[in-house]
């Protein structure tokens, strides 16, 4: 009767097996340092343009929206704190992770998927290389490390976006905006703002690798795996964001 539940449960089980194997592989040799650096470049440096643009315009939009709401209560001076808190706690980590999912989960899934359907993964195993060590571990470490860095950059440019609105439209002084933003942020916010992208980074890379490595059905299968990776990664990001936020709010 519950047969329809089998495929999703099996998929989740396989995902956690891959996650477990990946985490266990971190201390294991060989360490493919060149692959790690290359992935950090592709995932980190390669994602900079999209992260800068989404971060900046998020700050601009938030500044604009806040200006209307805060003018109603005569609290325009609170623009800095509100932009800072919203960006650091929520918008920065989530938007950066979604951008990374769109760019990197799909990239990883299509790259590994193409390797899978052309038997390159099998060839790698036959030639003495563990694909988890060579392919999954560098992507996992690179994404987990680079996403917090990208988020910090997105937060900063987002605050610059909010600053431009605060100065240009709301006629606040630089000191009012930046002092307000600085005072509003607590260590707890920074911790939340960095733990979230770290966990999202793990998810983005693992989901991409998972769907890439289980690709079947030729080029059509690669396309399917790519789409699934992006959709699943984004759903995971929002679900985990709710969970992590709940944990921080409850403290």
């Amino acid at each position: 009767m519950l047969d329809f539940l089998k495929p999703p449960v099996l998929t989740i089980q396989e995902f956690f097996i891959l996650a477990g194997r990946t985490i266990r592989s971190i201390p294991r040799r060989p360490h493919y340092l060149n692959d790690l650096l290359m992935q950090m470049d592709i995932i980190g440096v390669g994602s900079l343009p999209i992260v800068l643009l989404t971060g900046f315009f998020s700050g601009v939009v938030m500044g604009l929206q806040m200006s209307r709401a805060l003018q109603t209560y005569g609290a325009v001076s609170q623009t800095g704190p509100i932009v800072a808190i919203t960006l650091v706690r929520e918008m920065g980590p989530v938007l950066t992770a979604v951008a990374a999912a769109g760019r990197n989960s799909s990239g990883i899934a299509s790259e590994l998927g193409s390797m899978k359907v052309t038997e390159q993964i099998d060839a790698m195993r036959a030639l003495g290389t563990d694909p988890i060590l060579k392919l999954v571990k560098p992507r996992f470490l690179a994404t987990s490390f680079m996403l917090p860095c990208l988020t910090a950059i997105a937060d900063f440019v987002g605050m610059i976006g909010g600053y431009i609105i605060a100065i240009g439209l709301l006629h606040l002084t630089s000191a009012e905006y930046w002092n307000g933003a600085y005072r509003a942020l607590e260590y707890d916010d920074l911790a939340q703002g960095l733990i979230k992208p770290f966990i999202f980074g793990m998810v983005v890379s693992l989901v991409g690798c998972f769907y890439g490595l289980r690709t079947t059905g030729g080029t059509q299968g690669v396309g399917r795996a790519t789409t699934q990776a992006v959709v699943v990664a984004i759903v995971w990001i929002f679900a985990l964001n709710a969970l992590i936020t709940k944990i921080f709010v409850s403290r």
């Binding site: 052309t118 038997e119 390159q120 036959a126 003495g128 563990d130």
Partner: peptide, 23 residues
């Protein structure tokens, strides 16, 4: 286990159907 197989696989060579060269 996979890592235990590597030494045995090193004594084998395999040509895959389409070559399976790393592109």
């Amino acid at each position: 286990k996979e890592h235990e197989l590597f030494d045995l696989r090193a004594r084998c060579g395999m040509l895959f159907q389409e070559g399976a060269l790393f592109d």
